[in-house]
Structures are given as structure tokens and as C-alpha cells.
Design a protein around this nucleic acid. Sequence first.
DNA 1: TACTTCGTTTAGTAATTACTAAACATACAT
DNA 2: ATGTATGTTTAGTAATTACTAAACGAAGTA
Lengths: 174, 174
Amino acid sequence: MPNSLTKIKKDFTEGLSQISRFWGFPKGMGAIFAVLYLSPTPLALDDIVQETGLTKGAISTEIRALARMGLVHRSTKLGDRKDYYEAEADFYAAIRSILKERQNSEFDRAVRSVKDTLTTMEADWVENEEWNFVYERVQALQAFFDAIDSLTKAVVRLEKLGISNVTKILGVLK
Amino acid sequence: MPNSLTKIKKDFTEGLSQISRFWGFPKGMGAIFAVLYLSPTPLALDDIVQETGLTKGAISTEIRALARMGLVHRSTKLGDRKDYYEAEADFYAAIRSILKERQNSEFDRAVRSVKDTLTTMEADWVENEEWNFVYERVQALQAFFDAIDSLTKAVVRLEKLGISNVTKILGVLK
DNA sequence: TACTTCGTTTAGTAATTACTAAACATACAT
DNA sequence: ATGTATGTTTAGTAATTACTAAACGAAGTA
């Protein structure tokens, strides 16, 4: 007896849910994405309710987050008031999109606060051993963040971060 | 009046706490790391209790997680039963260490489940349009994960992932 | 041996986060 | 206008996670 498609979809969806949770997103988000990703046609909100067992409300808010990250796209059909959603199937595009999104996030705010610490210290400089030590450490962290930042910006700027670029990077690292 | 070091440390610690939370770790974890990172000398558990306001218990468990990730190192002094901790100051080393750790994690288990889906489908093959579609999509995701996996493995293998390597990568991406 | 000094574990609580159910808003159709 | 089919917001609940307090254990010391 062959495994039914529904079973396969369910397993896959569960897997993506766990991955989602692992990265700190709600597991429902992974599930929603999975359902869309495996659907040949765009789905309406109520279809997703059906497939995931979540409520409209939950899906409404979480799918907006997904859209903001560029992981799903919303579309409409003429003469049909429903919104339809489909998954972004190009994961490299998705990565770039997520990174772009992150640039205006809480994370960035926190990173900026490190920079602020630094300038504060420079303004009211005190010459002693501990001060120096702390300053150097904060500075090192700042430099690290800057490097990461350049990297993400470079990735975002690429029109196409595909497998070929990954291969290129692998070449450099070797 | 110059900003006191204690104030600066507190701000910095708060910043790292937020960053920690952003990445899905407890904020206490960021705080612990921050305190260690700004300390010129290794600190004992009770010192960290002092500086963070957390309890021994919390710190005990969270610092073990940090150690597992290679973000802090535990050491002892002869004739002193206390454990001392210090922060890993080389963030590139820390990244490699974290990636290494992740390879045996929940994440990997979930990723493997995608692979399993694939082999299940191959075993009980059904020839129809939807089946084909689903198979292709799952396969694409798998390929993506493989690429990511190669990348992280390459990074882990480097003895030294320093700023120079980051620069090299930036060059390739340009 | 009993007494200290440390780290760990555990059981319970506080805080946070994900989700539901239902009210609400909007826009179209009659 | 009134009704109907949609998506959104909101107020409350369930589930999860981070943490505390206190018991415990281990290992040294008197």
C-alpha cells in the first residue's frame, strides 16, 4: 500500500513546523508555509484553515508576517474577493528577503546600542586599565557586527543568490 | 560627570540581552555572556549572581548551554573548588563552534525528516500530476538544505574564520 | 565524623508567546 | 439599505519558557 499524499504532506508539514520553532518562529508559521509550498495552486485563507487546523485569526496575522519576510506572496483573482497566497519557491530569494527585513528590526536597534556604548565611552574618556579593557572588548564586538552587516548587505544586493554563488563561496573557503 | 563604568556595563549587558532574545535564546543568557565578556578576569558563579541578579540555579544551567556552544570556557584554579568562567572573545571561533553544535541538534533531525519524505516517495512511487509536483518541491527544499549544510560544514572546517575570510567572501559576492 | 562550600537538580511560579473564539470592519451583491 | 462573504482585531485562554527558591549532592576541611 503506497503512502498517501495526505500522509506525506502531513509529515512534511510537521517537519517544517519543527524547523520553524527551532528558528524562534511560531510552529504554525512553518505549517502555513509548508501547506502553501506543497500546493500547486494558490490557496485562500479558508483553505489554509482546512489544511492546518488553525483559525482564520491566527493565519491572518502569521501569514502577514510571512509576506513581510517575502516567504509568501498574496494575490487576488478578478471577480473574487478572496486573497490567495502562494509560497516563494526560490529559497535564495527568500533568504535575501528575510535579511532585508531584518535590517529594520529589533536586532538592528540592539546592535546600534553597542555602537552607542562606544561613542559614549569615547566622549567621557577615562584613562585606566579596566576602562581600556572594556573599551577594547566593546570595540571588537562592534567590528564583528560590522563585518556581519557588510556580509548581509552584500547578499541582499545580489539579484540572484543561487546555488552557483554558494558554490563560489565554498571555493573561497576551501 | 563621566559615565561610570558600571552604567556602561549595564547598558551593554542590556543590549546583548535583547540580541540574545532576538535569536531565540533566553535573555539571561545574553546577560551572562555580556558580564563575562567585559570582565578582565574569569568569574565564579557567585560573581555572576552578583552582576546579573539571576540565581545560581539559572546561571548554572544557562552557562552550561553557553559552554556547549563554545561561547564561554570553564576553568579552575588549583586549591580552589570554584569553577571560573570566561567569555570566548573570538567571535569567529564562536560562530564555528555554534555551527558545529547545531549539527547534532533538533534542527538537523527535522532536516533529515525532509530527506525521509523524499525516500518514502521514491519507494512508493505514484505517477500523477500532483505527486510529481510535490516531489519536485520537496526535492528543491532538500537541495537547498544540502547547500546550507555544505556551507556550514566548510565554515566549521576552517581553523580560522577571521575577518580576512569574510572579506574574501565579500569579494566573491561582489 | 560532622561541617562548609561550592554546583546541580527539582518543583513550583511568573512571564511570555501562540493561539482561539467571537466581535468587528469592509466591500460587494441583491 | 440589508445581507453575505470575506479579512482583521481584540480579549481572553492555553501552552510554553524562563526563572526562583530551596533541597540535594559532592567534595573538601576541621
